[in-house]
Amino acid sequence: MKILLTGASGLLGSAFAQAANRRGHEVIGLVVSYSGKVDGLATQRTLDLADLNALESLTLELFPDAIVNCAAISDPGNCDADPDSSRQINVAVPQKLALLSRHLFATLIHISSEQIFDGKAELYYRDSQPSPPNEYARQKLESEQRVHELAAEFATTLRLPLLMGNSLSGERSLHERLFLSWAAGKPTPLFTDEYRQPCLVENAAAAMVELCERQDLKGVHHWAGEKCLSRYEMGQRLLQHFGLPESLIQASERGEDPRFAHRQARLALDVAPLASKLKTRPQAFADQLDALIVPKPARAWFNSI
């Protein structure tokens, strides 16, 4: 299968490239400014995704069997600061890809987020009512709606949670950002009252490859790890896994800082419907930890303690 992948140098995109390559698929990856090599790609192309005409021309030239959209402006602060630019990537690009998938009769896998929910429910199901609390979440919800309005018979939206993993830059994922903070000697408060259901990118990527290969799983699906954990518990378990002192993190609550009081308290996803249909299984957090490495920018600090 020939797969066109956007966001190929990102945390999730690079994991998908390798997973799809292992399954024997030809992956053509689009990057914006990354100059290094992304493992797993048969071809790597540089393209400004905001140029929708160029995106259309290249996609029609390549004529893929499937399109996987991992590209996003995912930092809520960036979306709030420049909603027009983020909307171009978060809404206009998936809308264009949906039109192209319909034109080419190609499968479309669009990545969305648990952030579309308000965090007030104990568990969110595929048909739970979204209530996006910020600009990023509103854009992701609109992207879902546009994709399925335009290409319902070809599209699968996969809502994903907080992602764990080893990025190409060593600076993208949760554990990498924590290591960089620790290496810089910065205090690291983690919330005891903010719960997420973390998932390893390789695990999510394996599920995405299966979705590319299946024609009977269109629509909206949820995927995540086995358990919901507080950010503080995740930090504690990271420290234990890497043999680091507990003093590197501090227990905190969202309400103690007005900048974070609006953040969702609990985002737990019901993954049972999709898990019952895939060979890939949701992972325990301990198994996710086993896949993590000390990020390169923090190795000198780690080796010195």
Rank of each mutant, 00 (worst) to 15 (best):
R159K: 13
A152S: 13
G24A: 04
P198F: 14
T59P: 04
S230V: 14
F285E: 00
S252G: 06
T157H: 05
V271W: 07
L211I: 00
A184L: 05
V68D: 03
V27K: 12
Q44I: 13
P282V: 10
M234I: 15
L62S: 07
G7I: 00
A261D: 10
S113Q: 01
L267D: 05
R146D: 03
D80F: 07
L49Y: 04
A286D: 14
P187A: 09
P282Q: 10
A17G: 08
A42T: 11
T107L: 00
F117D: 03
L5R: 00
L52E: 06
S9M: 07
S86I: 05
L30H: 12
L267G: 02
S74I: 04
D51V: 13
A15R: 04
L100H: 00
S113C: 02
Q288A: 13
A71M: 03
C228Y: 12
Q129G: 12
K277Q: 14
I3W: 06
H222A: 01
R254A: 15
S35Y: 11
E26F: 00
V31Q: 01
H262P: 06
T43E: 14
A92V: 02
G225A: 07
T188K: 01
A50Q: 10
S14P: 14
L30D: 06
L163P: 09
V68P: 07
L289Y: 05
E226D: 14
E122R: 08
Y195H: 07
V31L: 02
G185W: 05
A152M: 07
D193T: 14
E56Q: 14
S143D: 03
A275P: 08
Y34N: 03
L229D: 13
L267R: 06
F63G: 02
P295W: 11
G185M: 09
H222Y: 13
R231E: 07
A71R: 00
W223Q: 15
D290M: 04
S112F: 06
F63H: 03
L229W: 15
P245D: 15
T107H: 00
H222G: 01
L269G: 08
P130H: 01
S173E: 09
I111A: 10
L11P: 11
C228V: 15
I67Y: 13
I249C: 03
V32C: 11
R237S: 10
S74A: 13
H25T: 01
S85G: 04
H222T: 02
L55P: 12
A205P: 12
T46M: 06
G7R: 00
I249N: 05
F179N: 03
S9V: 02
L11F: 09
L62G: 06
T157I: 11
R263F: 15
H241M: 11
Q139D: 05
T107K: 03
S143M: 05
G255A: 04
L58Y: 15
L158R: 06
I116V: 06
G243W: 07
R146F: 10
I305M: 15
P187D: 12
L238D: 04
L141V: 03
D127N: 02
K96M: 07
T59E: 03
G170S: 00
D39E: 12
P245K: 14
F191S: 02
L278D: 09
A137T: 02
R45D: 06
G24F: 11
L160N: 01
H175F: 13
T107W: 01
A81Y: 07
G10M: 01
G170H: 02
R254H: 12
H103P: 03
M208A: 15
A42I: 04
Q88R: 14
E253Y: 07
A272Q: 13
R87Y: 14
A300P: 02
G10V: 04
E213R: 02
